[in-house]
Amino acid sequence: MNRDAKIFVAGHGGFVGSAIVRALRQRGCSRLILKPKSELDLRDALQVQYLFRKEQPEYVFLTAAHVGGSEANRERPADLIRDNLMIQHNVIDASYQTSVKKLLFLGSACLYPKHATQPMKEHALLTGALEEANEPYSIAKIAGIKMCQAYNKQYQTRYITAMPTKLYGLHHPNDGLHASNTLAALFQRFHEATQRKLPHVEILGSRESKSEFLHVDDLADACLFLMDRYEDSEIINVGTGIEVTLRELAEKIKAITGYLGEIVYTAHAEAEADRIVDIAKINGLGWQADIKLDEGLRSVYAWVLRNESLLTKH
C-alpha cells in the first residue's frame, strides 16, 4: 500500500476511522477518499456502488458500523442487525465489483463467545454462546467476517479481519473521550470526586476482574501493518497482551486524577467477564502495541482537564 494509492476509509468520521486517517496522513498517503454521512449513506447500495465506480479505490478500511451498548442492543436490535448487515454487504460487494486490491474489516473482541477461554484465541469464534447483551450487534458483525472469508474463497479476494480488544483514546477533532464503558466511567467518577472532594468513590464490579485496553492510535498502526503484511482469511487479534485488574486500573486513575479519598468496590452477580485476547499471531508477524497504559491514561486525562465539558462524550 504505497503513498500514492487511492484509499477509502469507510467510517472515517468515527473513533477508529479517524485514527486510521491520522495514521495514513502521517505515512504520507494523500489520495484518501473520505465521505461524510451527509454525502454518502453506506446503507444505500446504489450510493456505495456509484462511489466505488467513480473513485476506484485500491484499498478499503471498513470501520463503519452502527454501534451501541447493552441498551441499544436491547431497545433497537433490528436497527443494529439491519444497518450493519447493509453497510457490510454494500462495501464488501462493491469492493469485489470494482476489483479493490485489499480490504480490512474491523471486528471486535466482543464477538467471541461469552465463556471463551482466556486469553481468547482466534479459533474460539463461534465455539459457544454469545454475550446476550451484545447479541444483535455481534451476529451482524460475525456475518461480515464470514462474508469476507466467503469472497476470499470463491473470488480469490484479499479481505482480512482485525479483532481489537477494548479501546480507549481521544476522538479528534474535539469530540471528547472515547473508551470502554468501564474506563470512561472510572474517569468520570474520579474526576467528579476530585473536583467535589468526595470522601470515597464507589466502583461497581469485582476488584480482581481483568480487562485489556488498547489505545486507538495503536490499533490504527496495527491496521496499516496488517494491510501491508497480512494475507490470511482467518481473523487476527489486536491487543496489548497485558492484563489489568479493576483494582489496578482504579488505582492508576486515582493517582492520575489526584484523588485523595477511598475506593469502595461493590461486586455484583452480573459483573462483566474477563475479556483478554491472545496476540501471539500478530506478535509473530512483528507487530506489538507501543503506547503503555499509564502513558495513554495520562494523555487522556490531560486532554480532559483542557476540555472538561466534553468528559462524558464517549
Rank of each mutant, 00 (worst) to 15 (best):
I33E: 08
S299Q: 15
S38L: 03
H268D: 10
Q188I: 05
A185S: 15
D217L: 07
I33K: 13
H191E: 04
N84D: 03
Q56Y: 11
L106H: 06
R22K: 14
H171R: 13
L204F: 14
D274M: 06
K54P: 00
A255G: 07
D79S: 04
H115A: 02
H178S: 03
N73M: 00
A19D: 11
A280Y: 01
A65T: 09
N90Y: 09
N283T: 10
E234P: 00
G205N: 05
A124C: 14
H314L: 02
N73Y: 01
R189L: 14
Y168R: 05
S38I: 00
K37G: 15
A19F: 09
I253S: 08
K166T: 08
Q26C: 11
F61T: 12
Y259A: 13
I20P: 12
Y50P: 00
A289C: 01
V91E: 04
A179E: 01
I276T: 06
Y159R: 07
I139H: 07
F190P: 09
L177C: 06
E131P: 13
F190I: 09
L186R: 02
L226I: 02
T63W: 08
G28Q: 02
L297G: 04
R53M: 12
L198M: 12
Q154W: 10
A23N: 11
G17V: 04
H123G: 07
M163S: 02
V300T: 14
R31S: 15
P77L: 03
L183Y: 06
L311Q: 01
Y265S: 02
Y259D: 11
A64E: 08
H172C: 10
K101N: 10
V9M: 04
D274E: 12
G296N: 06
I145W: 03
E122S: 14
L224R: 06
A220H: 08
H178I: 02
K254C: 07
R53G: 09
K6S: 09
G13C: 11
K197S: 02
E55V: 05
C29W: 05
F225W: 08
M227S: 08
R207A: 10
M147F: 08
E55N: 04
K121W: 01
H178R: 00
Q188E: 14
I33D: 06
E192I: 02
R22E: 15
D79M: 13
I33C: 10
A19K: 11
E202K: 07
G11V: 11
K54W: 04
S95Q: 06
F213Y: 15
L32F: 03
L80G: 07
R3Q: 14
S299F: 06
T257K: 11
K197Q: 04
L293D: 01
Y155T: 07
V216P: 01
Y230T: 00
V238N: 14
R82A: 05
G128M: 05
S299G: 04
L214S: 01
G13N: 14
V60N: 00
L285I: 00
K6W: 09
A162V: 12
S138R: 06
R158K: 15
E202A: 11
L46T: 12
G14R: 05
M120D: 02
D41F: 03
F225E: 03
F52W: 01
L126A: 15
E251P: 05
M147I: 05
G205I: 13
D83S: 09
N2M: 06
F213I: 00
D274I: 11
A94T: 00
A78C: 09
F52D: 01
D4M: 09
E75P: 00
M120C: 07
Y50V: 15
L198Y: 08
M227V: 06
H191L: 04
I235T: 14
K210G: 06
Q195A: 03
